[in-house]
């Protein structure tokens, strides 16, 4: 990794996002959690209000760092039945763009298609990511991660039980 954020290239960010995707697809969720800051947030807005604010709009997921950690604990435990046994997933990340840089903080967007394969079905989650990344100790960490679905509804997906 490079020493200062102004030298971080799109290629660096892509490497980071590809590594993140690999950790999630491989269910290495503890290692994934270590990519997040201690004040990280993870959000998935409802499909009809993609630009809402979780304080006044009903979301699908709006985790603070504690709730995100609990989510990971659950997914690695036995009782998250929707993911026990775990689904096969495959994340495709593209259209990665660094939108802005300020101090040690980068705003990054990307497109995603996440396939979830379970019980004979393939559910395809399509959308875009908005990340706030911070450059710290020579590497990048995730302070904010929002997965904005382009789906009109979670139909036939039925749920977002993986880390999207």
């Amino acid at each position: 990794m490079v020493a200062t954020v102004s030298h971080i290239t799109r290629s660096d960010v892509e490497d980071f996002l590809y590594e993140e995707a690999a950790l999630l697809d491989e269910w290495r969720l503890r290692e994934w959690l270590e990519l997040t800051t201690e004040d990280a947030t993870y959000e998935v807005p409802s499909t009809d209000v993609p630009d809402g604010n979780p304080q006044d709009t009903l979301f699908i997921i709006a985790d603070n760092a504690d709730r995100l950690r609990m989510r990971v604990d659950q997914l690695l435990g036995k009782s998250a039945w929707a993911e026990n046994p775990p689904s096969r997933t495959r994340r495709m990340i593209s259209n990665v763009r660094i939108r802005s840089v300020e101090g040690d903080t980068l705003c990054v967007t990307a497109n995603f298609v996440v396939y979830r394969l379970r019980s004979g079905h393939i559910d395809t989650y399509i959308g875009r990511y908005e990340y706030t990344l911070v450059h710290r100790d020579g590497g990048l960490k995730i302070r904010h991660r929002k997965a904005i679905l382009d789906l009109e509804a979670l139909q036939p997906h039925g749920k977002v039980s993986i880390i999207l």
């Binding site: 006044d56 979301f59 699908i60 709006a62 609990m70 659950q74 039945w81 929707a82 039925g158 749920k159």
Partner: peptide, 26 residues
């Protein structure tokens, strides 16, 4: 209070909560 309520909602309810996805699975 609205923000807190919505937060409590999502701990259980909805397709991304800690509960409803397991109902769907069941």
């Amino acid at each position: 209070d609205r923000a807190l309520r919505l937060d409590h909602f999502l701990t259980f309810l909805g397709p991304g909560g800690y509960a409803t996805p397991d109902d769907v699975e069941a």
